[in-house]
Write a protein that binds this DNA or RNA. Sequence first.
DNA 1: ATTTGACGACCTCCGCCGGAC
DNA 2: TGTCCGGCGGAGGTCGTCAAA
Lengths: 337, 337
Amino acid sequence: MTIKDVAKHCGVSVSTVSRVLNGRPDVRQDVRDRVLRAVEELGYMPNSSARDLVSRQSDAIGVVVRGTGNLFFSAILKTVAAEIDRRGYTMVMRFIDPLDDEIRAGAMLEREKKLRGLLFLGGRFDYSPAQLSPVRVPYVLVSYTNVFGTLDEQSYSSVSIDDYRTAYRAVETLIRRGHRRIAAVVSSSCDRSVSELRTRGYCQALADNGIAFDPALLEETGGDFSMPGTYEGVRRVLSRAQDFTAVFTLSDTTGIAALKALEDAGKRVPQDVSVIAIDGIEVSAYVSPVLTTMVQPAEEMGRESVRILADMLEKRAGAQHLRLEAGLREGGSVKSL
Amino acid sequence: MTIKDVAKHCGVSVSTVSRVLNGRPDVRQDVRDRVLRAVEELGYMPNSSARDLVSRQSDAIGVVVRGTGNLFFSAILKTVAAEIDRRGYTMVMRFIDPLDDEIRAGAMLEREKKLRGLLFLGGRFDYSPAQLSPVRVPYVLVSYTNVFGTLDEQSYSSVSIDDYRTAYRAVETLIRRGHRRIAAVVSSSCDRSVSELRTRGYCQALADNGIAFDPALLEETGGDFSMPGTYEGVRRVLSRAQDFTAVFTLSDTTGIAALKALEDAGKRVPQDVSVIAIDGIEVSAYVSPVLTTMVQPAEEMGRESVRILADMLEKRAGAQHLRLEAGLREGGSVKSL
DNA sequence: ATTTGACGACCTCCGCCGGAC
DNA sequence: TGTCCGGCGGAGGTCGTCAAA
């Protein structure tokens, strides 16, 4: 089933079929309809190798997902996949460990699969231009930015929420409701990444409201956003301090782990301790109490990431940095004191 | 930089360069060396699109995921992705709606991307050979089988648990602990798919233990394994009957939705009503109470699916049907009466 | 007998030219 | 003169075939 068969089937030339398929204007409407009907009937699919061959580039977009257990990435991913398909590109995915180097993985993927562009779902925030030099195709940082790094803003794109401000707002929400002893369970306060940025938001919200930072209330789990790590982290905070009235965590899944740890330790949520998180995935609306959380617009994030990359690939626009707004979802895990 | 440049650079024909590059024997040693040196000097890389064009096959394995919100599939997917990479293949994914036709999607993907093989994550159980005829490459049904269909067992592979028996064991677990009024919230009892099979397991477990089937206790939500659908389903069962002591659901996420619906209706789990499910994803171990569930071996399922497909592609073995065992994870959502 | 060259086919897109109305 | 369509050749790498050295 080639373009020749289609041409033969409806009695036109190969050139005409090609013109129709590529939406060019110089074909009469009735001929156009006849060709499209033949394509439908025969189930013709253009040979993508031949198409790539003439266009001298592939249609592959690489997606490097760092942190396989991250349910928020799963939510983004399905929109990204649909949007990549819709625009006629091919998605090539690679899952890597949260501790692995996503730039290396991306650069390898680029060479192996001759990528047109790359999306990075999760990664470090502190790259220098030299570190990114192995990546030679346009790329978009999805759900994070390069605030700690020295990349030229014109050289890459990003789509994310303002992590600092979102964490700030989450903690501020707790403070407005009367909380002053607020614990935070993070993966690290100095990893030059999302965890550090959100920890800073936490600290600044405390400072702006005249609350002294207490190191005993900051727990660093060390790893990624793991549920067992956070569960143990909450237990350690409890062993150091019993007087905190709220816990801030980095993600919904770790928020759910925190709920569990508190409950297992005999603390009721929200009567004894409140919990707030960031993400807004579906399952956190079905735990008890419903997790109060800052919702990231996952679908918009996925859709816009692909749009921006496509704009760059098709030269409609240069680098863009899209900062999306997170919104508070009121659950039942925060109590007003 | 094409093969022509290489040929010109060392004074041989294009055919000869091609012969050298493809390791064919009929080239003199000194000519071979001259060509290889030229390739090295010029940094020549064959154009993979042109190569694909003639070989008419790529190294791509298609993965059609039916049901984007299914967290169990997310768990399988990361193992599948890693295993496909490890074996040197390329993964091409497509997410489709639970109501869409995965065979059509797979066949389109096969032609678009020139797939070597296909993995189907989720789908119908009742295909006929004619329906599968558009799929011309080897494929593996992952997490389901063709029990309701008429496919030749030699023509395809599958990796799954025994859905009927696993549901049977889940319900039997409830019965052994004294439950006799057991509700089931399923998506459909006659969809010729996983839901029907598990519903049959539920019915048979009741029958084998002398418990009459009560239609009022069987709720069909109609759609897929959605959380809001299940939440509403549980509410409808509650409006019909108040005397059941346990609920069986098809998946962990719907189990979590059931926990929520019961709690919101003033029922305590497990004191008033027990809940049991099938899947064993991470988050269900962190809800309260911990969900009691039949754990599917997600990693093994993903790994073995790719292994079986690779065996078929590389002619090491024919079709295989692997039935894995699910194990009971004791949580806190089932009470002994 | 062994090695090498030349060529067409595979498939699509695109630019260009020419013919038809 | 303008619109529509056909046809040709080139781009790219592989591979079989045939001819030539």
